[in-house]
């Protein structure tokens, strides 16, 4: 029972990270109906920026905030420069552009920082917090940071005029344009926010999986699985899906199938959800008109 509890709690910690990345995916999906294959690499790249800043002697939290800001700018720029021209292109073209982005970010990181694995500092103390022996301080901290980010986002979308405008632009671009919302910029802002959320996820996961240009491959897959499980158009679903996938991955990995096939769990989950309930648990069912 002890071991089980341990795995569940560890699963919640990684699940929080999947939840953040899944949320970033969902934000972009809601605004543009695209699944950003480069989300993981964007998070990886910004985590390297944080690493550089910290190595240059900056204290952790200023570096953290600066990185989030940088990620936001990066996201906005990517939307404006690279995604904009293919907005109305066929799906294949968009997928190719996303994959190209993934490859470019991956190789640029490899080019600048080499492919050697680096350790990334955790802002949280080494010894367990409050004498909880089931979770390390970093795991608890990561969950807290995730929850803070989620509530900030919720508050932003729920209570600010800008958040309302962004939701409107995502839901009905044409009508939003008619009431004077600059839909193009709302999309760019959405990309920026998603990149910022991804950066937080990257910085939280880096102390666990270590920093290297390919660190996000598996995590992105879990984030996909989480977003699909919760419903790709439901932010709340993405968060719950993230935690569920984290726990599922850890428990199955520890007790049922072993660590080697963890990625296959994500594969089976993705295909399973898409087959049984493509809209996910909390998503809306879409009906297309002929």
């Amino acid at each position: 029972m002890d071991a089980f509890l341990f795995q569940v709690l560890a699963g919640l910690a990684t699940g929080g990270i999947y939840a953040s990345l899944a949320l970033a995916l969902v934000m972009i999906y809601q605004a543009t109906h695209l699944v950003n294959f480069a989300q993981g690499e964007m998070a990886m790249f910004t985590t390297y920026i944080a690493w550089s800043l910290i190595n240059a002697g900056m204290p952790y939290w200023p570096a953290f905030l600066l990185t989030v800001g940088f990620a936001f700018v990066l996201g906005v720029l990517i939307e404006r420069i690279i995604i904009r021209p293919v907005e109305d292109a066929p799906v294949l073209a968009v997928v190719v552009v996303f994959i190209a982005l993934l490859v470019i970010l991956n190789s640029t990181a490899g080019w600048i920082y080499t492919y050697t694995i680096k350790s990334f500092p955790s802002p949280f103390p080494k010894e367990p917090l409050f004498g909880i022996r089931y979770m390390s301080a970093h795991e608890i901290g990561a969950i807290c940071v995730t929850l803070v980010v989620l509530s900030l986002l919720y508050a932003f979308f729920r209570f600010t005029p800008l958040g309302l405008a962004m939701r409107a632009a995502a839901q009905n671009a044409q009508s939003s344009r008619l009431v004077g919302i600059r839909v193009g910029w709302m999309l760019a802002l959405g990309w920026g926010l998603a990149a910022a959320v991804g950066a937080v996820a990257g910085m939280m996961v880096a102390p666990i999986v270590y920093l290297d240009p390919n660190m996000m491959g598996g995590i992105l897959l879990y984030a996909f699985a989480a977003a699909l499980l919760g419903g790709i158009d439901s932010p709340m679903g993405a968060v719950i899906g993230g935690f569920a996938v984290g726990v599922l991955e850890n428990v199955l990995g520890a007790f049922v199938i072993g660590n080697e096939l963890k990625l296959t769990v994500a594969l089976v989950l993705i295909i399973g959800v898409l087959l049984v309930r493509p809209s996910g648990i909390f998503g809306k069912v879409h009906v297309t008109r002929v």
């Binding site: 799906v91 997928v95 598996g218 990625l263 295909i271 087959l275």
Partner: peptide
């Protein structure tokens, strides 16, 4: 067969997952 139900982006996602998971399956004990 299952891919029939998936269109465009979703199929890309499912096949992407297949591509990522393959090396692990090959390494399976």
């Amino acid at each position: 067969l299952p891919a029939l139900r998936l269109e465009g982006l979703y199929l890309a996602l499912a096949t992407f997952a297949l591509g990522v998971a393959m090396p692990q399956l090959l390494k399976y004990d």
